[in-house]
Amino acid sequence: MKIVCLIKFIPDVEDFKYDHERNVLIREKMNQILNPEDAVAVAFALNVKKYYPSTTIELVSMGPQSIIPKLEELLRLDLDQATLITDLAFVGSDTYATSRIIAHYLTKHKFDLILTGTHTLDGDTSHVPAQIAQWLGLPHLSNVNSIHMNSIDLGRLELSVDHDQEIMSFAVSTPAVLSLQKEAPYKLPYVRFEDLNKDVSERLKMLSLKDFDLKREDVGFEGSKTKVIKTYAQTLNRQTKIEVTTDEAGIQTVYDYLKDKGFLK
């Protein structure tokens, strides 16, 4: 079985920088982390490979070259290949353009399963996996919280989806796109000590616009179907408010307030 994991490195939301002139996030300077749900997806793929050693796993990520060291760190696990789709021309791609570029790469390849996260912590649109599934004409489910290992060989995967108050079990024919959720019980292993500095560069492939049958105007800002017009800081309507501290008088004020409004009997 061949598994493709779509992974995204996201800015550590705590220290973000934003280019207000061009309305883009400056990703180059920021500390990047692997989106936690994507880590869950890679961890599941590694589990499959343990069960079925003939499995091959390819990571595919679209992002800046600054994530190469992070990809190499992952490649020191039992992964077969990483493909980084990177070009300045891709900067500014919205989810339409992003999914189009990634899907374009995937159409040229054979695989049985595409694993993704349900959403990313930075964009949080959940668009990309469903959009890629549509470009490729594949079934898709999100919020997957477990995939039954025994069904992997059947050409029909059995899995559970966390649907609010319910757990729904499905059977899905492969190839398919499955988006895992953070609650799924798969954890990335640590790199073996002897592999910590292993050279993995021959398993890392880089692709730029010229490797795609896409035109400049199909990608980046031009290839996008949405545009950020402006961003601004939210102004909050100030309430007429009471200010107290946690001293006895303050606590009494809160207590009286709760009584007064009927929140306390």
Binding site: D94, T95, Y96, S99, D124, T125, S126, H127, V128, P129, A130, Q131, A133, Q134, W135, H140, L141, S142, N143, H163, D164, S179, S224, K225, T226
Partner: peptide, 22 residues
């Protein structure tokens, strides 16, 4: 909703239009 979130992006691609979430 959970279903809306995986259905809307598909329809947007099928119609080749942009989609804004949430």
């Amino acid at each position: 909703t959970q279903l809306g979130r995986i259905l809307a992006p598909r329809v947007a691609i099928a119609l080749h239009v942009g989609l804004v979430a949430d």
